[in-house]
Amino acid sequence: MNNALAIASVVVKELYRRKDFYVLFVLTALITLLMGSLNFFNDDKIVRYLKEICLLLIWISALTIAVGTTARQIPAERENRTIFPLLAKPISRGQLVAGKFLGCWLACGLVLIVFYLFFGVISASREHQWAAASYFQALWLHWWMLAVVVAMALLGSVVFAAPSSNATICLVVILGILLMGRHLNQVALQLAEPMNTVVYAIYFALPHLELFDVRDLVVHNWDPINWLVCGGATLYAAAYAVFFLFATWLVFRRQPLA
């Protein structure tokens, strides 16, 4: 664990010393504030559209940071050859994978805290209330979804040669799941065999990332989700993250570095 945490701390340092996060945060803040300054029929209490735009930007930024940061971790270590002095220390490849995962995931957590605080301030400034439980659930579920995304991108980084191709494939898969995941069972019903079984199998096998997207509930001020259900979703994400990490280790442990 010590080695994994040491590596994670370097990844977190990398995140806050690079410009990516700041650029995305400033863009999110600027667009949100710009949209907030628009006057719709002289009504300054309209807030839901602003919450929706802000959350959409947060999701885009978080996904970009998560996939972008993770996809370059191991390839950058190889390209800059820092993987050699690193693995020449008493550290296993499993610990390296765990450290990279932990670093990227914790970095995403920090990013989300900053973004959601901004979101909270924006919505509170108009609604004059703070739906703390809903916001916390949104952040928590978002963070766990990113655990799956980070683990998936890490697997991609040991399978695909170029970080750009890995990032592109990951983003396409993630967006596909977010948009289509929930409806694949409906699609399957309209297909003839054997495609019906194939699509249904994909539906059950893929990680349903859309479960963690509770933006509609937050935007429209629905009640918080049952905490047990929230816990179930956390376990679901943890299971998939562990699965992807294990697969990453399986591929990476015998991979020649030279």
Partner: peptide, 11 residues
């Protein structure tokens, strides 16, 4: 271990 031509974490 000192590897050949390594570019350490520049940040």
């Amino acid at each position: 271990y000192l590897p050949e031509l390594t570019y350490y974490y520049k940040f």
